[in-house]
Structure formats: C-alpha cells, structure tokens
Amino acid sequence: TEKEKEVKRLAKERGLSPDQVRELAQRAGFSPDQAKQIADEFA
C-alpha cells in the first residue's frame, strides 16, 4: 500500500532499527501484527 511504502521509505532514510520501524508503522495506523511484518523486513 501507499502508506506501507511511505513507512518503509522513512525507515530506510532514517536508518531505523526494526523496533523503531514497528513503532513508526503503528503510529501510521497499522495493526501490531502488520507493523511487526513490516519491521521484520528490516531485521
């Protein structure tokens, strides 16, 4: 999704850790499970 792409782009730009990616995703409105899946891509 657009929102997911945006979260991943920000995460890459900022060099976020997987935990930070998960927090960012949840703040963007993703469920905890979705946020974990997104964060796992950065693990």
Rank of each mutant, 00 (worst) to 15 (best):
R9V: 03
A39R: 03
L24V: 07
E13C: 10
F42D: 02
V21A: 05
L16V: 02
R27V: 11
L10C: 15
A35M: 01
E2N: 11
A11S: 05
A43K: 10
D19A: 11
E13M: 07
K3N: 08
A25E: 01
G15I: 03
R27E: 15
P32V: 07
A39P: 01
F42W: 12
E13Y: 04
A11G: 15
L10P: 04
K5L: 11
R22S: 08
A11R: 00
K36N: 12
E2F: 10
G15V: 04
P32M: 04
D40P: 01
S17Q: 08
V21C: 10
E23Y: 02
F30Q: 01
D33F: 03
G15C: 08
V21E: 02
F30S: 01
P32N: 06
Q34D: 09
Q26I: 15
R27Q: 15
L24G: 02
Q34S: 07
Q34E: 14
L10Q: 15
K5W: 10
E2M: 13
P32W: 06
E4F: 10
I38R: 00
A11N: 01
R22K: 13
K36E: 10
E6P: 01
T1A: 13
Q37Y: 04
T1Y: 14
I38S: 00
S31Y: 04
P18R: 10
L16K: 00
K36D: 11
E23F: 02
A43R: 11
D19W: 04
A35V: 04
S31N: 09
Q20G: 08
K12A: 10
K36R: 13
R27Y: 07
A43W: 13
E2D: 13
K12I: 06
R9M: 05
P18T: 09
L24E: 06
V21L: 11
R22Q: 13
S17Y: 06
F30V: 03
D40R: 10
E13A: 11
A43M: 13
E23W: 03
D19H: 10
Q20M: 08
R22F: 15
I38Y: 02
F30Y: 05
Q37C: 09
D33P: 06
K5D: 14
P32A: 08
V21I: 12
S31M: 06
V7W: 02
A35E: 02
R14Y: 13
S17E: 07
D40L: 12
Q20K: 07
K12L: 06
E2S: 12
A28G: 04
R22C: 09
S31D: 11
R27K: 14
V21T: 08
Q26C: 11
K3C: 12
L10H: 13
L16Y: 13
A35I: 04
L16W: 05
P32Q: 08
E4Y: 13
K3I: 12
K8Y: 03
D40H: 12
A11C: 05
L24Q: 04
E2Y: 07
Q26P: 02
L24H: 04
K12S: 11
E6M: 14
F42L: 12
E13K: 07
T1Q: 13
